[in-house]
Design a protein around this nucleic acid. Sequence first.
DNA 1: CAAAGCCATTACTGTTCGGCATGACCTTGG
DNA 2: CCAAGGTCATGCCGAACAGTAATGGCTTTG
Lengths: 305, 305
Amino acid sequence: MTLDLRSAAVLIECVRRGSLGRAAAALNMTQPAVTRTIKLLEAGYGVPLFERNTRGVVPTLYGEALLPYAKLLVSEAGNADDLIRQMRGASRGVVRVGGVASVLGGLLVGAIRQMRQHHPDVQFRIVEELEDRLLDRLKSGDLDLAISPEPYADDEIALAMPDAFHDIVSAYAGTGNPLLKRARISLEDVAREDWALPPAGTPIVREWLRRFHGRAMEPKPPSIVSRSVQVIKAAALAGDLLCWMPLPLVREEVERGELARVPVAELDWTRTFRVYRRKKGLMSPSAAILIQCIRRTAEHLEEPA
Amino acid sequence: MTLDLRSAAVLIECVRRGSLGRAAAALNMTQPAVTRTIKLLEAGYGVPLFERNTRGVVPTLYGEALLPYAKLLVSEAGNADDLIRQMRGASRGVVRVGGVASVLGGLLVGAIRQMRQHHPDVQFRIVEELEDRLLDRLKSGDLDLAISPEPYADDEIALAMPDAFHDIVSAYAGTGNPLLKRARISLEDVAREDWALPPAGTPIVREWLRRFHGRAMEPKPPSIVSRSVQVIKAAALAGDLLCWMPLPLVREEVERGELARVPVAELDWTRTFRVYRRKKGLMSPSAAILIQCIRRTAEHLEEPA
DNA sequence: CAAAGCCATTACTGTTCGGCATGACCTTGG
DNA sequence: CCAAGGTCATGCCGAACAGTAATGGCTTTG
């Protein structure tokens, strides 16, 4: 490993200024120091990073290849610094956080319980929203944090932590459902089943449809349509209907033996979540700390799964 | 900036082993060196990163907050090394690369032209596919690289370069279209216009619909439906229809004054692309070099825009 | 109460990194 | 044709840093 943070900064500046000397000036270094840093990099990699000419330097293909990694390194190191700085403040105030239903129960409540152990004076306001409206409320200043599925490429919104966490969406049926008795269940079989689903057009139903359309099938229109998780679960429990739910929302029923996953691999969907915040302005220390509790809780939740 | 690569590696190992001494052993260092590294980090940030107890250390919230950044740093540094190693090989062979239509013309052809200057013996095979099939062909080994819109969270597929590039999809009309003469054009106005579009269900049309549904409007069903870019452009040029196209596909017509962007901000969509490769196995050196040429070309294309 | 395991501290050493002075090279202009 | 001004490269030196070894303090454990 030869590219460390300092040499990355040097590399970036050399590319930007097109000159080792000017890069040195911008970095408050002397030109020979820059020269040697670059030469060490080149020796380490065994390839030239710059073409030298009399007016300065121009990066080779190797130099340009390294550039995005160098930028990533310094920017992430800076983000780490910012985060710690944000966390270092006092720990009171209000944190307003929103998420889709499946993350609120286990993940967010667990994170808040953990945080309250060390910071009992912080108040929380929790908002449940569909994923497309979450980010709007974040942008409008209505929320401090939003736990939302990927992706949101938006200039006003930034990731609040670099790593994502996951959610397994699968088909579930009441354990009494005769479908579960078959030796092998195919996608065609479940396409002919009756379903209980959220309304058409919601992201999760669109994703559900894609599973079938990808195999050129058309499932039956859902027999029961509801925004309510309770209603959908009840439909699966009582009425031989199938539902397509994130595991956290049915974990209890599965553990009690009331619901069972329908074993069709094509119907399993690993949904990726990230935690977002507004790009402009600093987070409150409480929000920064909550992010860490979310992280920690997510780790603990994912391990036993 | 206090978190550099070495201290990041130390931090990671300390968290993993739960003990400074064992971390030192794993890193081929002595325990005091590790202790001092951690203490320097803590002094730099002004917060404790570990709670010490008699059985070892356990990370504080601050330590855990830093952990994902530390992991990111070392992993990206490693990726940079891998990339250079991959690029260092010989430069002949065949590269099979796929993309959606809008990236093939300007971006990919430009990148290949650039690459052929230095590596004239490499052969290219270019495949145009819709975005959902692209990644399947990549996974099956049919392609070496795929230039595809985000996101594809998939265990078999990895990013081939860390930064993304963009594409601006906008509505265009023939310059003779009377709509363009209005002082202000609203989303309601264009919802009442006639459109030429790709078939319903394609990702780009789904995105187009979302623009209107987000404001609770229903546009007219498209008058002309075709998969052919030529047909759609011709419809806009000749028949007062609107089309919704990525800028690269209409750049020439815009520069010749035949098509003009319809100035409705809600209809502009910044599409994000990334270059993907299979996760398993190494890339060929030729593919690694092509990635850099794509990067370089994308930069040059985005600047004048 | 002794043993064992852990981290913290101190003193010492070797390597690395940056600064300074200088050299080699090319372009430019009189 | 030669001097001037720009570039990067090189060698030497001092300061800062990272690592080692030895030791001490602390807690748990038998």
